[in-house]
Design a protein around this nucleic acid. Structure first.
Lengths: 110, 110
DNA sequence: TTGACATGAAACCAAAAGGTTTTATATACT
DNA sequence: AGTATATAAAACCTTTTGGTTTCATGTCAA
């Protein structure tokens, strides 16, 4: 551990543009300018989003010639997964309860 | 569906205070003032966080006498779960790691 | 009914977020 | 060498966020 990382995974994925960027990069490594072509905003704005994603370690960039290519680095999503798994007990239970209700309702109507 | 909901699940969980509130409410239904006692901030600030969580449908409040008690409403987390499941293939699947290796190998040999 | 309690609502504020434009630097091409 | 490309970095702007304080309202309890 080192750099006082300003943005964490939770913040990083809060923005819809950043989530779209992650989606794009999940398919293919891409340079900034090409990523930008998918959005109605300036290259600078996209670069800032990439910077935030980098801080959260969700993407990694490497210089290739004059361009910088980014690719997905999904590992930090495991933190999100862990966080979420705590709550799954609550909503999966509820869903299964609901399922029960619906099923017994259906039975009554037979 | 009705109210143009200003905050979604992703934004709602982006803030650490709000995540702590969810944790608290996962254990027990609680009124605002009691939730507030767990944080170094004013009751008003906590109430605002609860409002944001309500907009995202992650909590629900009911009036009981003069207090308003909130409880967890975890269902919307399923959206997060769905989003995340798309990325799980990238970090949990050994085959995808192998795929990565093979592909980059193939690339090097072009 | 009077006072204490629990919340709601409004006005205000500083800092962060999400953009922009402008200027600079490194690499590639001819 | 000179020009076009790809990015970096900085200054600036507006809106949102996360907090505060103040005042009003509804409910409980004596």
């Amino acid at each position: 551990m080192s750099a006082a990382q300003k943005h964490d995974v939770f913040q990083a994925i809060a923005d819809p543009t950043r989530r779209e960027i992650l989606k794009l990069l999940s398919e293919k490594e891409l340079p900034i300018s090409e990523i930008t072509s998918h959005f109605p905003m300036s290259r600078t704005a996209v670069a800032k989003h990439l910077h935030i994603l980098s801080e959260a370690e969700l993407v990694r960039g490497r210089k290739v010639g004059r361009e910088k290519r980014f690719r997905l680095h999904p590992e930090p999503l495991s933190e999100l997964h862990e966080w979420l798994s705590y709550y799954e007990q609550f909503w999966t239970n509820r869903l299964s309860i609901l399922k029960h209700v619906v099923e017994s309702q259906a039975k009554n109507e037979e």
